[in-house]
Simulated scan of single mutants.
Amino acid sequence: MGLHGKLVAAIESKAGGDVVHDFFRHTPHDVPTATQYVHGCDLIEGEFGHAGSIICWTYTHDGKQRKAKELVETVDEEKKLIVLKVLEGDLLELYKNFVITFHVEKKGDDIDLVTWTLEYEMLNEDVEHPLTLLSYFIDITKDMESRLVAKS
């Protein structure tokens, strides 16, 4: 029926993939200091950087204040991969389910790519694919990278 979708974007890391992964995994509560788009990251349950934890994000997307409560489904340190499943929030007004994967991968010997994958199921055929949200994650990555490069 065409209600399932998957969008992927990969951008080259200037700060180094390990640095970006460590920042997003261990200190997501510092993301609001790196970008104007994220306003809060509250730990609801568990421990930052660990599977099974629940995090609540407050952010601005498409000019509107939004919230997302997410389960950290997977953390794979070896693969530099984090999978977040949306449990509650604005996205579930349009999508039956929504999963966000953050992944750092090597391209050759000296290039790291920060990859965002959005997998979702739309509630109905009138819902648009979340292209602006994918662009949003690219913007956040650029902001985080600028902060991390400036610190080094």
Rank of each mutant, 00 (worst) to 15 (best):
I82Q: 03
D62H: 09
H29M: 09
I55C: 02
L71H: 10
E78S: 14
E88V: 02
L43Q: 12
H61C: 12
L91S: 08
F48M: 11
I55E: 08
H50P: 08
H39I: 10
G52L: 08
K69E: 02
H61T: 11
V86T: 14
Y59Q: 04
H29S: 13
L43F: 13
G46E: 13
Y37P: 00
I44K: 10
R66Y: 07
G49N: 04
L91N: 10
V38Q: 02
K85G: 06
V38M: 05
E47V: 12
P28F: 02
H39R: 14
V38E: 03
E47P: 05
Q65T: 13
D30Q: 15
L71Y: 03
C56E: 15
L43A: 11
A68T: 11
D90W: 06
G40I: 12
L84I: 00
L71K: 15
D62V: 11
Y37H: 13
Q36M: 03
E70M: 07
K80Q: 14
D30K: 15
K79L: 12
G46H: 10
P32L: 05
T58Q: 14
F48R: 06
P32G: 02
G40N: 14
G52F: 08
D42A: 14
L91M: 13
H61E: 13
C41R: 08
E45M: 02
E88P: 01
G52D: 03
W57T: 09
H50W: 10
Y59P: 06
V72L: 04
Q65S: 15
T74R: 02
Q65M: 14
V31I: 14
G49I: 04
L91V: 09
F48Y: 15
L71Q: 10
V83I: 12
V38N: 04
G52P: 06
I44H: 07
G63V: 07
G63Y: 12
F48S: 09
G89M: 04
V75Y: 08
L71N: 10
H39F: 08
E73I: 05
L43D: 13
A51D: 01
S53M: 07
E88T: 02
K80S: 03
E70L: 01
H39W: 13
G40D: 15
V83Y: 00
H61V: 13
V83D: 00
L43M: 14
V72C: 03
D62K: 12
F48D: 09
K80M: 11
V72Y: 01
P32C: 07
G63F: 13
A34E: 05
I55T: 06
V83T: 05
L71P: 09
D90Y: 08
D42T: 12
L84T: 02
H61W: 14
G49H: 04
L43V: 12
I44A: 10
G46F: 11
E78F: 09
V86S: 06
T60P: 03
